[in-house]
Design a protein around this nucleic acid. Sequence first.
DNA 1: AAAAAATATTGAATAGACTCAAAAATAAAG
DNA 2: CTTTATTTTTGAGTCTATTCAATATTTTTT
Lengths: 204, 204
Amino acid sequence: MTGLRAKQKANRTERILAAATDLFREQGYDAVRIEDIAEIAEVSVGTFYNYFQTKGDILVAIVSREVEEVLLAGAAVVARPPKTVAEALQRLVGVYYDHSIVYLSKDMWRTAMALSILNPDTPFSRRYSDLDGLLRNQVCSLILALQTFGRARTDVDAAALGETLFNNLNMMFIEYVKSDMPLAVLKSAVARQNGPVAQLISAE
Amino acid sequence: MTGLRAKQKANRTERILAAATDLFREQGYDAVRIEDIAEIAEVSVGTFYNYFQTKGDILVAIVSREVEEVLLAGAAVVARPPKTVAEALQRLVGVYYDHSIVYLSKDMWRTAMALSILNPDTPFSRRYSDLDGLLRNQVCSLILALQTFGRARTDVDAAALGETLFNNLNMMFIEYVKSDMPLAVLKSAVARQNGPVAQLISAE
DNA sequence: AAAAAATATTGAATAGACTCAAAAATAAAG
DNA sequence: CTTTATTTTTGAGTCTATTCAATATTTTTT
């Protein structure tokens, strides 16, 4: 039975998250003050800090929600991968990138990524890192699936290769949010980078 | 002819950098206050801000100096690469990592990387990004050198592959500074990841 | 349903990064 | 060597994330 307290807690968490999400999107992370979030969420500053450890924490929480969506979208690609290695990789990468930018601004991504490096031991940073790990595994799974379907050579370590490919696409996403690069440029750059690997591991 | 002003400016820059380097190493980035740096460097807080835009800026400046050393060390490996692809890659990676941790703590690296993502347009962040680009090129050059020496297949895009390999080793370094992973574990993880690529591009 | 215990909220106080108008130091001009 | 102009330093003041002791609310006990 959910007591009054539990209900209020869930309610406040939701209000704070919603307020922060809106404000971060509208004004950018830096311009938003905890006071602003607290006011819109109708709680005090102190209460905000009862629900989230730091200002960065709530951003990482918001971004983590988004990464969960990305993960789901990626799973669909792994389940029915395109025929060739190059196409399959590009499809997965495209899904990742497309989903990543629907709700979150570059500013929010940049800040969240920076903060997860800066404070890796915060609960939400851990969650974010875990999700990153799941994405990495997903790329490995894709390679494995391609091997299973006879599309890729089976004499290569799928996990090792998948990790490398994921780390590359992740680092390229960082470059993207750091700059004013358009999404299309990011995608074609990664396609080009994946080219040699796709060529080399494709089944003859 | 260097006037009095120019001399004093160079002198103060040096004092501020030295003070900040020592303090960051001793106490960690967060624990050091601008006031502390200013006091040891024998300038005022305002003057500090005349020389560096932000607290993060000076850290990125310090780290950038270090990356220049790493770049030099890497050049030696590219000039005379080991015989096999796997060995050559591992030698270069090892040189990068070994040099990176001589003067800078994990805390300093973590903070510098996070800040270069957070404020990519600060002058020192640009410099840091540029240096990263040079390191990336160095990995590409290594692949190219291996191809030239007949150690690697010449039918693969060396630049594309080099970028991927660099982005991977860079991302793994981030994982390393985020965690309490020992250096040896980092190195063997990257060696494992590079395995498939080395195998695939080695000349028959 | 009153009292006691446990849990949560609150906002004034703290700390430290950063700013900026006045003062000082250096350079240039007369 | 003065005077004027230019550049630099300075530190008190501002802003905002974060803390914490007092207060209020909810739950448990009697």
